[in-house]
Design a protein around this nucleic acid. Sequence first.
DNA 1: CTGAATCCGAGCGGATACTG
DNA 2: CAGTATCCGCTCGGATTCAG
Lengths: 124, 124
Amino acid sequence: MSDSMEPAEVKRTEALSAEIFTNIANKWALLIINTLGEGTMRFTELCAAVEGVSHKMLAQTLRILERDGVVNRLVHPTVPPRVDYSLTDAGLMLRTTVNAMCVWTRQHVHHIDQARQRFDERQV
Amino acid sequence: MSDSMEPAEVKRTEALSAEIFTNIANKWALLIINTLGEGTMRFTELCAAVEGVSHKMLAQTLRILERDGVVNRLVHPTVPPRVDYSLTDAGLMLRTTVNAMCVWTRQHVHHIDQARQRFDERQV
DNA sequence: CTGAATCCGAGCGGATACTG
DNA sequence: CAGTATCCGCTCGGATTCAG
């Protein structure tokens, strides 16, 4: 695959990869992706479903995810406006790995809690 | 499982989950975990292997991951000092999901690149 | 309801210098 | 080599306000 790419092309691809990873490797993006995995949701529903996210960060992060083709944005031309958010096919694939992260977290809460106590004791 | 927990206990667990997720759901933590998945590394090796990470953020993030029982820190009492970092068992499990994220990114670079161009055109 | 815009504080993150 | 500490710009992120 990389055989058929010019050096400059390879470099741009790497830069893009880093940029994309930065976009999705943050708290809000991951939580939003994971939540949207449960199905289509409206803006307000998402705001309530994603624990702790603010109005602003939700809008901002959704814009990034939409641009990167992870999230679909469907606007209903009604009054008041209704906008449905859902995962694209690419987003759905990503979601399975994100969900695995969430599951891992839940499964290791207790284990980590103990690790922390041991660590904190050691540091006096 | 949650049947056997007091309400206060449940609440603390949820708070811990959120905190843990915040710790690992960020660029540097994920990149470090993924890199350490390839094997034990010294501080300087990691600093070179994790693209773009600074001395400071590496040390800071490693401390957090060590405290959360994701990363092992083995100090050799030699001069000059030698410190080996590796993933714990929990860290290894987490790594498989993190790696899946990295793979997803690489596989979708081109697709995302096109999605962005379409998005940017639409916004004029 | 969906969103963009603004203000503003807190924390990220780089550069640098300093210890053991 | 590994790590901490300091300085400092800049972005993150919350609260609020305004528009469609």
